Computed example of a mutant assay.
Amino acid sequence: MKLCITSTGNTLESTFEQRFGRCPYFIIYDTDSKEFDAIENTNGDSAHGAGIGSAQEVVSKNIDVVISGNMGPNAKQVLDGENIKVYKGTGSTVLENIELFEKNELSEITQAGKPHQGM
């Protein structure tokens, strides 16, 4: 399974980022191989459509799950359309949220927050 975790940096030890569309990095983590890749979020500085652009970027990476703090309605709609589940991260680092997910201790986000919630 491939996870996408919002992050402030490019390592598993980086601080977890609560914002989805404007996070600095996405960490793509494979739960089978335990390997990861860090992708800079080029949509974070967009004047408009950061959530949609970020969601489309994530979709292009063939991920199964997103772990983030906040999820706007447009980004959630894109992810829902691709059957990608979204979970609310509660850990302070990327790695901590991966571990919490693997222990089934994160809650699924079934309803998006307000637009521009992360700004």
Rank of each mutant, 00 (worst) to 15 (best):
residue 75 A to V: 04
residue 43 N to R: 00
residue 34 K to R: 15
residue 30 D to Q: 10
residue 28 I to Q: 06
residue 44 G to N: 12
residue 53 G to A: 10
residue 43 N to T: 03
residue 22 R to W: 13
residue 20 F to S: 05
residue 76 K to F: 15
residue 11 T to F: 04
residue 69 G to Y: 01
residue 89 G to M: 00
residue 30 D to V: 10
residue 76 K to Q: 11
residue 79 L to Y: 06
residue 103 K to Q: 11
residue 104 N to S: 12
residue 27 I to C: 14
residue 40 E to L: 14
residue 88 K to W: 02
residue 88 K to D: 03
residue 85 K to S: 14
residue 45 D to V: 04
residue 96 E to G: 04
residue 72 G to L: 05
residue 17 E to D: 12
residue 77 Q to I: 04
residue 13 E to A: 14
residue 46 S to F: 14
residue 32 D to E: 11
residue 9 G to D: 12
residue 87 Y to L: 09
residue 82 E to H: 15
residue 73 P to G: 14
residue 86 V to H: 00
residue 23 C to Q: 07
residue 77 Q to D: 12
residue 73 P to A: 11
residue 85 K to V: 06
residue 84 I to G: 06
residue 119 M to H: 08
residue 25 Y to V: 00
residue 13 E to C: 09
residue 73 P to Q: 11
residue 119 M to V: 03
residue 74 N to K: 15
residue 117 Q to L: 02
residue 48 H to Q: 12
residue 102 E to C: 11
residue 31 T to K: 03
residue 38 A to K: 09
residue 76 K to E: 07
residue 52 I to E: 07
residue 8 T to P: 01
residue 60 S to K: 12
residue 18 Q to G: 02
residue 65 V to I: 14
residue 59 V to I: 10
residue 93 T to N: 10
residue 89 G to S: 02
residue 70 N to Y: 07
residue 98 I to H: 04
residue 31 T to P: 12
residue 62 N to H: 11
residue 98 I to Q: 05
residue 107 S to V: 08
residue 113 G to P: 07
residue 101 F to C: 02
residue 107 S to R: 10
residue 110 T to A: 01
residue 82 E to A: 15
residue 58 V to K: 13
residue 99 E to K: 10
residue 107 S to N: 15
residue 19 R to T: 09
residue 75 A to S: 09
residue 41 N to W: 14
residue 45 D to K: 07
residue 36 F to Y: 15
residue 107 S to W: 00
residue 5 I to K: 00
residue 89 G to K: 00
residue 18 Q to L: 01
residue 101 F to K: 02
residue 61 K to I: 08
residue 57 E to L: 13
residue 106 L to H: 13
residue 81 G to I: 07
residue 94 V to C: 06
residue 34 K to T: 11
residue 73 P to E: 13
residue 64 D to L: 04
residue 111 Q to I: 09
residue 22 R to N: 05
residue 3 L to A: 07
residue 35 E to T: 06
residue 79 L to P: 07
residue 90 T to C: 07
residue 76 K to G: 02
residue 23 C to H: 05
residue 45 D to S: 12
residue 113 G to V: 00
residue 76 K to P: 00
residue 102 E to F: 07
residue 98 I to K: 09
residue 3 L to K: 06
residue 52 I to V: 14
residue 76 K to N: 06
residue 70 N to D: 04
residue 54 S to F: 03
residue 51 G to W: 13
residue 25 Y to T: 01
residue 55 A to L: 09
residue 115 P to W: 07
residue 56 Q to T: 11
residue 66 V to E: 05
residue 80 D to T: 12
residue 63 I to M: 10
residue 45 D to Y: 04
residue 93 T to V: 15
residue 21 G to S: 09
residue 57 E to S: 15
residue 26 F to S: 02
